[in-house]
Amino acid sequence: MTGTTAQKAPEARSPAREAWRMYRRNLPAVAGAIILLAIIGATLYGTFFYGGDPFEIVWAPHEAPGATPEFPLGTDYLGRDIVAGLLTGGGPTLAVGAAAALITMIIGVSLGALAGYYGGWLDNLLMRFTEFFQVLPALLFAMVLITLFSPSLWTIAIAIGVVSWPQTARLTRAEFLKIKELEYVTAARAIGAKNGRIIWKVILPNAAPPLIVSATLTIGVAILFEAGLSFLGLGDPNQMSWGLMIGANREYILDAWWPVTFPGLAIFLTVFAVSLVGDGLNDAFNPKLRER
């Protein structure tokens, strides 16, 4: 036992590898990942197999799904192909969702971590700043931002990020406040770790589970937000997106259910898959569940 200690080159199993091992065993999480990958794959490569401009009028309006084999999900009020719309519209929707969630997490986690860890006047300053953003009605504020800087995928993503980070900041701060009092943080300090290291390598990994869940929820919220903005006509008009499809077709919902239902289902499925993945990640990064 003792003799072999020094020789064998030990490979340190990284937390990421360990988490992946856990994740694979979680059936709903794997299903979520497969659905999500399928959606991403379809929006990235779908147009190679299923050509067609989503803005082009190709057929009579309101052709029901299945009525014409060429247009399996039918056409919208202008006679545009819905499948083409779904495939090309998914990319921007997902991109905006992911980018907005990323911006939210970067701003929220950094400010929350600094406020929670250092406390004192910095905490006060950052929290007042956060509250300033929190009391603004999110949708209205986002609309103002988007109309100020002409609507494009980037401005939409940034606007969503800017209005949604305060919650993440508060959550991160609360986690930091709780964890920084724990003994292993003092122990880390006692072996000479720097503040930055304690924030990143000691507290953040322990604060990760709720943050990961919150991140995945934010992706879902951001996708819905984008859909809502497009629905209100504030999306990028030159960019097909699921929200835009719903927004454009909403007036005719009583005549034709399908032009709004399919993009709606696509949003639902995406958000659902993302939250399954989030739950799976949460469990996978929790070492206490690992021997199960």
Binding site: E183, Y184, T186, A187, A188, A190, F285, K288
Partner: peptide, 16 residues
Amino acid sequence: AMIFQEPMTSLNPVFT
């Protein structure tokens, strides 16, 4: 260096 009272809580739970 310092050894703490509570070995249960003085190690970081998320790393080996």
